[in-house]
Design a protein around this nucleic acid. Sequence first.
DNA 1: AAAAGATTGATCCATTTGGATTGATATGAC
DNA 2: GTCATATCAATCCAAATGGATCAATCTTTT
Lengths: 174, 174
Amino acid sequence: MTLDDKLARVFADDLRELMMISYIVLGNNAVTNRFIERTYQMPVHAWSSLYAIAKFPGIRAKEIRMIFPRPQNTISRAISLLESQGYVRQEASAADGREKRVFATLAGVDILAEMTNYSRKRQAELFSPLSEAERQVFFDLANKIAAGPHLLQSDVMGQDDSQIAHDNVRGAGN
Amino acid sequence: MTLDDKLARVFADDLRELMMISYIVLGNNAVTNRFIERTYQMPVHAWSSLYAIAKFPGIRAKEIRMIFPRPQNTISRAISLLESQGYVRQEASAADGREKRVFATLAGVDILAEMTNYSRKRQAELFSPLSEAERQVFFDLANKIAAGPHLLQSDVMGQDDSQIAHDNVRGAGN
DNA sequence: AAAAGATTGATCCATTTGGATTGATATGAC
DNA sequence: GTCATATCAATCCAAATGGATCAATCTTTT
């Protein structure tokens, strides 16, 4: 049996949906992470964080971690790396002394624009097998999954004591 | 702006498709990996490997790595862990002295059945926001993306000298 | 058939990861 | 107002990760 036959059989069985989306994201990450790390001397999480910081000036570390479901210390480190590279700056929150608000610098905005440009092209490349209409349908369905209550909180895989789950109720009641 | 508003804005912008599928898979992995590691004392890659080994008796390490796009040494280590736990055994290939063929033991098949059962339930939970018809559409579209030529080989993100890309031509000519 | 090159899987090792802890601040209970 | 509890972000540290190398084997070239 060839490799392609094996892949086809994996994608034909019980767990096909899980296998398929993992395959896509892991495969894409292998390509993307490597590129970002080699080109910009930062881990992918730093780029994700910079993206969130530029998009939401003054965002808190805690919020970044909910937009990109990663452990807390990952984000903490990403921010401190970005700060050391001069791409973001932190300010103590006036309202709450525990918090820091993070802002992108001009250099940060610049490099993010460049990186985002690559990502846009990568996205176009990755989704090129789909028509515009299909892309829309795919996105809408994915959005439904993400908005569901069980992405970060599982009943079947035990109580979640991780730092990932949060009180996100996107789509509750839909 | 609330967290949910921020998430909604991320999923409304340029890179929404990439953001969305990453969000789903990273979020799901956080839940799943934690559960597998805590319940079965093995990393998720070991369970993936065991899955492939049970499904394709005598599979080579190299092939597993192409079904689950992960670095070569990750699979090598996963197999040796599974072997030490008595879930798989390796045999020298008669045809090629470099290769080893891997087989699941009875214990391996047993524990895999248990794990697969959890995964099936997890999959049902994760995809529960979709109707049966929607699930099918989502899967078909995802399959198109996976079969495209640019998942593991990117033009826009540089030459791929990683060990991940391979001569998979699934869907070439489609 | 010898030499060069390619491929398989194990191992090496510097870096990254992430769960847990800590220190600082805020909130709630009494 | 004090004490107990909760939350935020940084740090600690054991374990995992992954690129690179290696030894063994197979293939191709000449």
